[in-house]
């Protein structure tokens, strides 16, 4: 029975190939607010199911999660569309929650730590899509030259998404690597687990920076573009500050 619950949980804390359902859904959800809510709620449903199972997941689930995290991190380096990238990074990050211990409250915090930066990025992507038609590297926006506030907001959002210190997902990764339970029952050495998680982190950066370079760097094709309003820029800045503050707070809980 518990295995069935875990299999259902693997739809919400998505493990490949069940993860394809989430990514299809995310790609089809064009409304930024709905997408943001999806990013917040989806993994929490999975954690709710894990809590329902009451037993720790079988070891092979964790190996499966590790493989999924690496697979989506790897696939993300070929992406050029920010919307798709958010889905892949979310899948990769939420998979790591399976390695995060057995206390559901802590797992919920970890999932939230991975989701929150992606929510901000998702909202920003909505703004970019409305303003420029798409958030895609092929558009050669040269955002830093034509709309510096948008550029700064995107830089911060992607840095937050790829677990740059002091955003909360950085501390979640650190907690996963330093957790003695990380590989205990998996038949894998924690050194192997730690190395794979570290590699996943590296791949996130690779894909994120490529995306950033494609959108922010270069001479923009469009000459006269209205930049983000000051009020909106301030709202994003407050969002990043809250995220950073939450990161420091989370560090106190997880480490």
């Amino acid at each position: 029975m518990s295995t069935a619950i875990y299999l259902l949980a693997a739809l919400f804390l998505p493990l490949f190939p069940l993860s394809m359902a989430f990514n299809q859904l995310a790609a089809r959800t064009r409304q930024p607010l709905v997408r943001a809510v999806l990013l917040l709620i989806w993994p929490q449903l999975g954690i709710g199911l894990i809590a329902l199972a009451a037993l720790p997941p079988p070891a092979w689930f964790r190996v499966w999660a590790l493989v999924t995290a690496a697979l989506y991190a790897y696939r993300a380096i070929a992406l050029r569309d920010v919307g798709l990238w958010i889905g892949f990074i979310a899948t990769s990050a939420w998979s790591l929650v399976w390695l995060g211990g057995a206390v559901p409250a802590e797992l919920a915090l970890q999932a939230l730590a991975f989701s929150a930066p992606l929510v901000l990025l998702s909202l920003l992507t909505g703004d970019l899509e409305r303003h420029f038609g798409a958030a895609h590297t092929r558009l050669q926006l040269g955002l830093a030259s034509v709309a510096p506030r948008y550029a700064l907001a995107l830089v911060m959002a992607i840095l937050a998404a790829v677990a740059t210190p002091v955003f909360p997902n950085f501390f979640t990764i650190l907690a996963t690597i330093s957790s003695p339970v990380a590989g205990g029952d998996m038949g894998l050495s924690p050194l192997v687990i730690g190395s794979v998680v570290a590699l996943v982190w590296l791949l996130w950066s690779w894909s994120g920076i490529r995306l950033l370079q494609g959108i922010v760097v270069g001479v923009g094709r469009e000459r006269a573009v209205a930049d983000m309003s000051r009020a909106r820029a301030r709202a994003y800045a407050i969002g990043y500050l809250i995220l950073a503050g939450a990161g420091l707070e989370l560090a106190g809980v997880l480490l």
């Binding site: 690597i177 330093s178 003695p180 050194l191 730690g194 570290a198 590699l199 590296l202 950066s205 690779w206």
Partner: peptide, 19 residues
């Protein structure tokens, strides 16, 4: 990329020492 690659061993070392 090289610097990020260099971050990983330190991250692992931190995990080992904490454990």
């Amino acid at each position: 990329f090289t610097y990020r690659f260099g971050d990983l061993p330190m991250l692992l070392a931190a995990g080992l020492l904490y454990t």
